[in-house]
Amino acid sequence: MAAVMTIEELRHGLSRRKHLDKLFVVVGLLILMSCLGLLALLFLDLVRDGASRFGWDFLTQFPSRKAERAGILSAWVGTSMIMLVTAVVSLPVGVAAGIYLEEYAPKNWFTGIIEINVTNLAGVPSIVYGLLALGLFVYQFGFGQSVLSAGLTLALLILPIIIVGTRESLRAVPKAIREAAYGLGATRWEVTKDHVLPYSTGGILTGLILGLSRAIGETAPIITIGALSFIAFLPGSPVTGEFPFLNWDWLWSEFTAMPIQIFNWVSRPDQAFQQNAAAAAAILLGMTLAMNAIAIYIRYRFRKKINW
């Protein structure tokens, strides 16, 4: 049989193409390694600089004028409380908006504009959210420079992330599953609540955690609304020993947060404070990585359970 090329030509050409394939692998790996390497170096550098400060005391002491006695207690407690508000507010709002846009909204110019703007919101500089929150939450609503204002601000900031994440995971539910439920006589709400939403939980929670890990490092908006950099008290505990066991005072409390504390320490000339800043930054980075790890774990768990 006549072929377009001899076997030698064929092998020659093939080996060249295979070389190109290998080259791409090498280049790709190099680029990837240098990115990861940079991040690892940064982390190691922070850990080395802050090494002398790690310890229980660092976590359980309030800030102080003496670097070696200063800790991040009020910062990490403040950050945790803000994240709690952010999560509790942004999750239901973002998921509801995502469900509406994906499952309910008719496809017309109006919802088209809403969709484009949701995507645009993700690109708005965070300081702009800070200014908006200063006017709206702090003054207009009178929430003051509080944990509540900060939590709401960051909730706004990550809302687009959660909406987009929700929509993507809703969309991943196969049409066949929806048709099966509709075919049995389910209403749109029943299809959503019994099927689409439960099967997208993994993706939605992943979106939430990715949003929170973005929010946890945000500095500009919470400086704008008036985070304090020196706080030597803790907001009241949300849980109490007496009935009704819940206490809302913490929402109205003044606060500081991890990035604010770091920013404050970095701007001091004293070398000892630089060490504090490095240690706190390493801890903040650790918190972010831990959140991402949780997101990956959740995704893995749900993938294993639901395998389309």
Partner: peptide, 16 residues
């Protein structure tokens, strides 16, 4: 209508 008339699809589509 769907509550009175059932359907079985081409590809098996059980709920997870």
């Amino acid at each position: 209508v769907r509550m009175r008339i059932g359907m079985v699809f081409q590809k098996p589509n059980p709920f997870p």
